[in-house]
Design a protein around this nucleic acid. Structure first.
Lengths: 344, 344
DNA sequence: TTGTATGCGTTATCAG
DNA sequence: CTGATAACGCATACAA
C-alpha cells in the first residue's frame, strides 16, 4: 500500500510489451527499435517511473550508496566533512548513510557490519578513539570493500587517506607561541592511539626542540575521550597548573579539548592569552568572535570530505583493483586571534 | 566477490535442509523442531550469518531505515537533532539515511523521491525555506508513509510534529530586552513562509504590544536565506541602522541570523549589548564564552530528535492507521549572558 | 515437522 | 528486434 511505485511490469502491461523489452528500452539498449524506445520512455516519464533501487541492489550487488562512520555527527569538524561528502555523493547520484561510533570500538564494528550487509559500495571512515584492533577493517578491505580513511587514519591498511598536515599545524602553532614569549608550553593530546594524536604531538615536540626548548614530559597530558568529558580535561588542566614548572601556554590537540580548556580557564579566572596562551585544533564557529579572539588551527573539513568522496568513487568505479593508493595531505590554517596568518 | 556473505542457501546446503526450513528456524518459527532450530542457529552463529537487508527490503517492502531531511547538516541545531535521531534509531535497530535540502525545494523533492524509492519506513523532516508546495509531502503521507515533522512543520499535513514554543521563546526574549530598557527592538526573521518564522514573529509582536510599545513594521526584516548568505543579513542590518527610528536592540530569529548579526555589529564597531541589544535563536557552541556572553534562545535539539524518532517508530510499528496525531511542544531555554534565566 | 513453489523488481541469457 | 525464463536472498502459502 505504502508508496505503490510503478514498476517495469506496469509499463509492460500498459503497453502490451514484455518486461525485458521495457527494461532494455529504458536502458537505451541498441537492440530496441526507436519507436518502441520512444513509446516506453514517454510513457515511463508520464507515469513518473523510477527504477526500484532495492531491486537493483539485490541484482547488481551494489547500492549506489556509501557508508560514513565518524565518532560524532554533532561535532563541527565532522559535520562540515559530512557536508562535503554529501555534496560530492549527491552530484554523482550516490546516497550517503551516516553512522556514529561515539568513540566506541564495539559500536564502530556494529556499524561496519550493518553498512556492509546493506551493500554500501564503499566506506569513508574516521576511526574511533577506542579502536585498537583494525582487523575487521583490514579483512573488509582485503575482501574488496573500497575504504577511504580521513582525519584519523589506520596505518596498517593500504588505501586512500585524506588528512591534514597535523605535524605542521601543531609545529607552527607551537612555534608561534614561542615567538610570542611563551616558554613553558604544555600539550593536551587526544587519545594516544590516534594517528592525529601522534602527528600533532610530534609537531609540538619538534617545534620546542627546534626552538632550543626542552620538552617537559609532565607537560604532555593525554585525554582518552578527546575532551568530550569535561572532567578529564579538568583533571589534566589541574595537573598542569599544579606542576612545579607551571605551563604558561597550552596547545590543545582536539576541538573539544580546545573549547573545554577555554571554558575551564575562564572559570578559573585565567585570561587567555595574557595569563595563559592557548592555541587549539578547532573547527568550531564563533572562535573569532571571542574577546580576545581565540587562536586556532583550523582544518579544511568540507574540502576533506569532498576529496575523500572523490577518491572513494574513483575506487568504486574503477574496473580493476587499485594498488597504488595515495595519501592526500591538506594544509591547516593557523588563525591567530581571528585573522589567518598562515596557510598551507 | 566483494563481501561474499553467507546466505540461507549456504546453510541449507551445509546442513542438508531446505532453505525454507532454515529460514523458519532462524525466525524461530513454532513449526520447527527444537533440534533443527538449534542445529541451524548454532551453525548460523558459527559461520557468522546475517540476513541480507536488501533482500529483506525487497520482500517485505520495508527497510528498517528512516530517512531524515534537513536543510543543512553543518548547522549546530540540525546536527544536534540528528544526534538524537540517530541515538533512538540505533537503539531500535533502525538505520538513518540523512539528506540535505540546502533550502532548495527541488532538492528536497529529489531527496524525498530517493528516500521513498529506497523504501525508508518513515521520514523525519524539517522543511526547506524555499518550499511553498507541500503536495508531494501530502500525497506521500496520504499514501501511508509515516512522516514526523520537527522545527519547521507543515500545517496542512496531519501528522506528529515536534516543535519548541517559538512564540514563548521570542516573547520572553523580547520582554527581557524591554525590561532592560530597550525600546526600539527590531526583528530579523527567517524566510516568511516557515512555521517557525511566523511563530517567532508573533511572539515578538505580542511582547511589544503587551509592553505598551508600538510595533514599527520597518523594524521587521525578512531574510529569505535565514542568514546563510552574509550579504542579506548585512542589507537588512544596514536598513535597520538607517531607519529614522533607529533600533536599539535586535531579536534574531535564526541561528545564522544571530551569529552573522553579531559578526556584522562587531565589524561596525557596535558593541553588544551596550550599543545594540541582541538576543537570537541559536544552538551554536561557545556563545557563553563571548565577552560579554551572547544572550540566546536555545532549543533542546537533541531531545527533539529523540522525541521525533520515538513518535515515528510508533507510527511505523503501529498496525492500524493512526489518526490522532500530536504536536509535541518543548520549552526553549533563554540564556542571558551565559546563564540560563528561564526554562519551559 | 519439513519441503516445494512463488514472488518482491530488475537485468542477463538464451531463444525466437 | 522482441519475448520467455532464471537469478539475486529471503519469506511464506501450500503441499506432503
Amino acid at each position: 500500500m505504502k508508496f505503490e511505485a510503478v514498476t517495469i511490469k506496469d509499463i509492460a502491461k500498459a503497453l502490451g510489451l514484455s518486461t525485458s523489452t521495457v527494461s532494455r528500452a529504458l536502458r537505451d539498449s541498441y537492440e530496441i527499435s526507436q519507436e518502441t524506445k520512444k513509446l516506453v520512455l514517454d510513457y515511463a516519464a508520464r507515469i513518473n517511473y523510477h527504477p526500484n533501487p532495492i531491486a537493483l541492489s539485490l541484482k547488481e550487488r551494489r547500492s549506489r550508496s556509501i557508508g560514513v562512520i565518524v565518532s560524532e555527527i554533532a561535532n563541527s569538524f565532522f559535520s562540515q566533512t559530512i557536508n562535503g561528502i554529501e555534496s560530492i555523493a549527491y552530484n554523482n547520484g550516490y546516497n550517503v548513510i551516516i553512522s556514529q561510533s561515539r568513540e566506541s570500538a564495539d559500536r564502530e564494528m556494529l556499524n561496519l557490519q550493518y553498512l556492509t550487509s546493506r551493500s554500501v559500495d564503499g566506506l569513508i571512515v574516521s576511526v574511533a578513539t577506542e579502536t585498537r584492533d583494525f582487523s575487521f577493517f583490514k579483512e573488509l578491505h582485503d575482501r574488496g570493500m573500497p575504504i577511504v580513511f580521513f582525519d584519523r587514519v589506520v596505518d596498517v591498511i593500504q588505501t586512500h587517506k585524506v588528512i591534514v598536515d597535523n605535524y605542521k599545524g601543531a609545529y607552527d602553532a607551537t612555534l608561534h607561541l614561542v615567538q610570542n614569549g611563551y616558554r613553558r608550553i604544555a600539550n593536551m593530546v587526544n587519545a594516544a592511539g590516534l594517528s592525529i594524536s601522534k602527528e600533532r604531538l610530534a609537531g609540538y615536540r619538534a617545534a620546542l626542540e627546534d626552538s632550543g626548548l626542552v620538552v617537559n614530559e609532565n607537560h604532555i597530558k593525554y585525554c582518552q575521550h578527546g575532551g568530550m568529558i569535561v572532567a578529564e580535561v579538568e583533571d589534566a588542566l589541574n595537573e598542569l597548573l599544579a606542576e612545579g614548572e607551571r605551563p604558561d601556554a597550552i596547545i590543545a590537540s582536539a576541538d573539544k579539548l580546545t573549547t573545554n580548556c577555554l571554558r575551564l580557564l575562564k572559570a578559573k579566572g585565567l585570561k587567555v592569552p595574557d595569563d595563559m596562551g592557548l592555541i587549539g585544533f578547532s573547527n568550531t564557529d564563533l572562535t573569532e568572535l571571542l574577546d580576545p579572539p581565540l587562536s586556532v588551527i583550523k582544518q579544511p573539513a568540507f574540502e576533506m570530505g569532498e576529496i575523500a568522496t572523490g577518491l572513494l568513487l574513483q575506487l568504486i568505479e574503477s574496473k580493476r583493483p587499485v594498488t597504488d593508493f595515495e595519501t592526500r595531505v591538506l594544509g591547516t590554517e593557523l588563525i591567530i586571534r581571528g585573522s589567518s596568518v598562515d596557510n598551507r
